[in-house]
Each structure stands twice: as C-alpha cells, then as structure tokens.
Amino acid sequence: MGQTGSDARHALALSANDRIAVVAGSGLLPKEVADGLVKAGYRPLVVAIEGEADLEDEPSRYDFLRVTHEELGKLLSILKRRGVTHMVLAGGVARRPPLSTVRYSPKILLHLPRLAAGYARGDDGLLRAIAGFINSYGIKLVGAHEVVPELLAPQGQLTKMAPTRADERDISAAIAAARAIGRLDIGQAAVAVGGRTIALEDIEGTDGLLRRARVLRSHGRLAGKSRGVLVKCAKPGQELRVDLPTIGPQTVRDAHEAGLAGIAVEAERSLILECGETVRLADEFGLYLLGFARGREQ
C-alpha cells in the first residue's frame, strides 16, 4: 500500500491466501473500508446488513452477500465455509431484532455465558467477548484502521485555520470531559465553549450531541458566546478493533451549524472518513481541524 509513518505502524500484514470480510452496517465507514481494500489489491467479501448498509453488489470490485438481522447468528459459519480469515465490523446497526427471531448456530450456545458476562461489563466488555467468539471460528477480528490505515487521523493541524489560545482552553476542557465519560463507558465526545464543557455524548451519538450544543447556544450563560470545539477521543482501555471515534463531512456540517470554531480528534486513535472532503468543508466554513497527541490531558 506504500504506507509511511503512522500508516506503516498500524498496517496489518496479510498474505495472498488471506480472505477479508467487511460486515457492513450504516454510514460511510463500510464503503471506505471496502474501497481501501480494493485499492490495496484485495478482493473483500462485503456482507451488507439489510436495512442498514448503503452498499450494492459490485462484482468487478468485490464479492457480495446480503443478510438480514435474523441471519447474523449464523454468519460466522457461512464466512468460515467461504474461507474468510479476517473480519472487519464497519458501520452502525440501529435495529436489534428480538432474540427469539435470530437464527443461531449451535456453537453460539456454548459461548452465551461469556457473552452475557461481557455484556454485564459494558460495551467494551461485550466487544471483547464477541471478538473471542469470532476467533473461536478461526477468524480474526481486525480494526478498520488495521486494513485501511490511511483512515487514521494524523497528528497536527489539517486545515488552514488554526486554534487560538482561547480555543486551546476549550480543547483541553473537552478532552478532560471526553476522557471522563470514556472511563465510565458512556461516550467518546464532548463540546466545550468558553473554557467549559457544555454537553457530553450519550446514546444519541455525536449527531445528537451537536444538536443539543446548537440548542444550548441561546440558553443562559451561553447566550452570546461564540466559538467552541467538538472533541472526540478513544475511551481509556477501549477495544480499538471496533467503534473508534469517527468524523466525516457531516460532522463538519453539524459542528458549523452548532456555531463551533473547530473539531479536535485523538491522532492515530480516531478515523476521518472522506478526509479530503472533510478538510475542504472545514476550510470552507472557516473551522479548524486538529489531531491531538494521545497523551494530552491524561
């Protein structure tokens, strides 16, 4: 792939015999991962979850399989028969069908106690339990950034606009808040204005966080205050193979609508989708886009 720097450090060594499946949910990430693998000379198997993935069969570029939510319980058996050695989970899944409608393979019953224990430990505990279950089929769960490392946010300023000293105070406040909710396994993002955190990410995700930040602009002590920042960073101790903090063009649009001055993400532990367009939009709106070092504010 011709990687240098951080790309080379994160790239996964794959052989000609390896077979990669991209399990595609919603959003831009599945397409970015599939496109990156094709550019690198691989022919992935794209598994599109019905009602979630916005991907169609492209026989000239990759193999394709469409599955329903109810069929996910047997997916690993199907992938094993197709010779899959590595799996990437990419994109969101909004609908969770009743357990009684899901078709399970007999093997999953043996792992239910571990999966239940992982669920009780929160999102990251469940993800680790799922990774263990996938590995039991001889399939290795890998992160999107391991197969397409150019998705990782680099360190430093990416836009023409740079943060001011006041912006740096906002960034520090938001990083501290995002790390605090990350330790509680709640979310990965925070918004700060005027040196204070005003909103934290919850189950609504970053979209909901930025909607609330926009509404808060007209409330109380925030009325009349300008600028502010969205910060996203990985949870301390997070399972990095799934659900890395992610931004893209829509994040920039939403941040602009919320009246923010910029976005800061944790370098090499966050993803930037459609990076060229994301940076272009930030420049158009006069926002700064920054990748900060992992150790900042820890």
Rank of each mutant, 00 (worst) to 15 (best):
Q3W: 13
G5V: 07
S6T: 14
D7W: 12
D7C: 15
L12Q: 08
L12Y: 05
A16R: 10
A16D: 12
N17A: 10
V23Y: 04
S26H: 04
S26T: 02
L28A: 09
V33L: 04
A34N: 03
A34T: 00
V38R: 00
Y42S: 11
V46C: 06
E52L: 02
D54V: 05
E58H: 11
P59H: 13
S60N: 11
Y62R: 00
L65D: 01
T68I: 07
G73T: 07
S77I: 05
S77R: 14
I78V: 15
R82H: 10
R82V: 10
V84M: 02
H86V: 06
V88P: 00
V88N: 02
A90W: 06
G91H: 01
G92F: 12
V93I: 14
R96V: 07
R96Q: 03
R103I: 14
Y104H: 12
Y104E: 13
P106N: 07
I108H: 05
P113N: 09
P113Y: 10
R114S: 13
L115E: 12
L115S: 12
A116L: 14
G118I: 01
R121S: 09
R121F: 10
G122C: 02
G122D: 07
D124I: 13
L127T: 15
R128W: 09
A131S: 14
A131G: 15
G132Q: 09
G143S: 11
H145R: 06
E146F: 01
E146M: 01
E150G: 11
L152V: 04
A153D: 02
P154N: 06
G156K: 00
L158T: 02
L158Q: 07
T159Y: 01
K160A: 11
P163C: 05
T164V: 05
T164Q: 13
R165W: 13
A166T: 09
D170E: 09
D170Q: 08
A173I: 10
A174R: 04
I175W: 04
A177F: 11
R179V: 15
I186R: 13
I186H: 08
A189N: 11
G194Q: 11
I198R: 13
L200S: 08
E201C: 00
D202G: 15
E204H: 09
G205P: 01
T206H: 03
T206P: 06
D207T: 15
G208W: 09
L210Y: 01
R214I: 06
H219K: 14
G220P: 07
L222A: 10
G224P: 01
G224E: 04
K225S: 06
G228Y: 03
R241Q: 08
D243N: 12
L244M: 11
L244D: 03
L244R: 01
P245I: 00
T246H: 04
P249F: 07
R253W: 06
A258F: 00
A258I: 02
G259R: 00
A261W: 06
G262Y: 05
I263S: 03
E266S: 06
A267T: 05
S270G: 13
S270V: 12
G276F: 12
L281Q: 03
L281K: 02
D283L: 12
E284P: 06
E284A: 15
E284K: 15
L289P: 00
L290T: 04
F292T: 03
G295C: 10
G295R: 14
G295F: 13
E297G: 02
Q298S: 15
